[in-house]
């Protein structure tokens, strides 16, 4: 089977898995406790890394752009530039990549180990649908948590940028804050929230599909985990480009 056919098959399997999960989401018994537990693991558990990623990305943005803007005499716009980069691009993408590394790998490894130790078969033999019990709560938790984590990354990024601007370059905090406030539009915010929703779906569906498709024992678990992280990261970056273009058209932003 060549690469193109294999990729197409994987896209088909992943889409089918998402469709199954969506259909079974509202059937009884509901797994709300399972979903809340996943929201805790995915959301609350990822806060420290999102905080650090956001803060230092914002900081380095200021570090790199302030001198350039200063040479044009536009250093007052640093806050605008940092906030715009974060809200539109870096916040959603970096959050997605961090969550892929932390949560996507964990989901894939957990489901993969369950497959090779026959726990998935045992679950089916006991009359439980693994898609409803395992996949649906994880997908939904990711969909709900990704926008929240992205907003957190944006906020801490802007704080990081502001800290560097005021502490290293002696900028007045009010100047930084007002350039952020007057620079960012509601369309930027809408785009910045819609993207992580799609990224959450991508990360969840790919890692669940890779995990459930594990074969070949413990080596297979390693293989499917690596594959889940690599595939989800690449798909997130590719999807980001097309989403950015689509949002420009839909929200009528400057092209």
């Amino acid at each position: 089977m060549n690469f193109a056919i294999r990729s197409l098959l994987e896209v088909q399997e992943t889409s089918l898995l998402v469709a199954q999960a969506a259909r079974r989401l509202f059937r009884r018994p509901s797994y709300i406790t399972e979903m809340l537990a996943q929201m805790d693991v995915i959301g609350v558990g990822s806060l420290p890394i999102i905080f650090l990623t956001g803060f230092f990305t914002g900081g380095v943005l200021t570090l790199q752009t302030f001198p350039t803007l200063k040479s044009y005499g536009a250093q007052d716009q640093t806050g605008y530039l940092v906030a715009l980069s974060l809200v539109r691009e870096l916040g959603p993408v970096l959050t997605a990549l961090m969550v892929t590394g932390r949560v996507g790998s964990a989901i894939s490894a957990e489901l993969g180990s369950m497959v090779v130790s026959q726990q998935i078969d045992a679950m089916r033999a006991l009359g439980t649908d693994p898609v409803r019990k395992l996949v649906a709560p994880r997908l939904l938790a990711l969909l709900l948590m990704m926008p929240l984590l992205t907003v957190t990354a944006d906020v801490f990024g802007i704080i990081g940028g502001g800290t560097v601007a005021t502490m290293l370059y002696g900028m007045a905090p009010e100047t930084f804050v007002s350039s952020v406030r007057f620079g960012i539009t509601s369309n930027d915010l809408i785009g910045g929230i819609l993207k992580p929703l799609v990224f959450g779906l991508i990360i969840g569906s790919i890692s669940c599909q890779k995990g459930l498709g594990t074969d070949g024992g413990t080596v297979g678990v390693g293989r499917s985990t690596t594959s889940a992280v690599v595939t989800a990261s690449i798909v997130v970056i590719i999807a980001d480009f097309f989403l950015a273009k689509a949002l420009q058209v839909i929200l009528d932003m400057p092209k």
Partner: peptide
């Protein structure tokens, strides 16, 4: 099959307990 499986018990090679 989920309904049919309710009448079955299955014992797996290594136990397959949910760890």
């Amino acid at each position: 099959m989920m309904h049919v499986r309710k009448r079955f018990g299955m014992i797996f090679q290594e136990g397959a307990l949910f760890d």
